[in-house]
Amino acid sequence: MKILVCAKQTPDSTVRVKVAPDGRSVDAAQITWAVSPYDEYAVEMALERKDADASTTVAVVSLGAARAKDSLRQALAMGCDEAILVSGPGAEALEGLGVAKALAAVAQEAKPDVVLCGRQASDDDQGLVGAALAEALGWPHVATVTKFAPADGGPAGSVNGIDVWKEVEGGHEVWRAPGPVVLTVQKSEKEPRYPSLPGIMKAKKKEIPEKDVASLGIGASLPKPEIVKMEPPAARGGGKIMKDGDAKRTAQELARLLREEAKVL
């Protein structure tokens, strides 16, 4: 089975992000970059397939700035077989639909049985690319996936459909999709593995080919929404300390405040 994972490089989730002076972008200084968490689950899910069946190959693609190569290198160190960077002028400014079209061009060339995307990126939370990618490819799409495996039957090595586990309220469902298919990933069975030292040493020898986004034939006139303003969340107000020593009165007052002021009861 051949798997293609789409991985976006976003600010590391442990970093405290600041708004840039222009008021509509993020201050890039002091940011450390990493694979977006849901995409990291997608990488792990692909590698779990590879653990189960060594004939599986996993390629990972990232679209964005040249620095995304570091994140691809990280995915290689985790155990992916190959990596592709789509970059060049205009790559960073692409909006979800354009990203999906560019990735579709990569997928058409790579011919995977399964494309995995995180369900949404941790920077813009749009959740658009996976579904739009399936649309652009004309392939089926299953969302909120937690696991997948080749369906039984068919000759060895062939992919006779994909069984997909989906999280739903109170349980899970198993869907069967004909391949090739695009899956958007909710969570993998295990936490994403960390790169091993031998993995890092192996990864550094691998070439990461770069594709110019301009060569992928995406229409230039895609309609594009724009961010016009960014605001940090409002600072948290001071708490209220109830100083009455009597437990019963304090509890009554607390219940009143929760009902009348906080309106949570």
Partner: peptide, 17 residues
């Protein structure tokens, strides 16, 4: 070097758990 950054980053990631 790129290796040294990767090594430090990977150890940090492991330790974060």
């Amino acid at each position: 070097s790129e290796d040294q950054r990767a090594i430090r980053e990977a150890v940090r990631e492991l330790c974060a758990r």
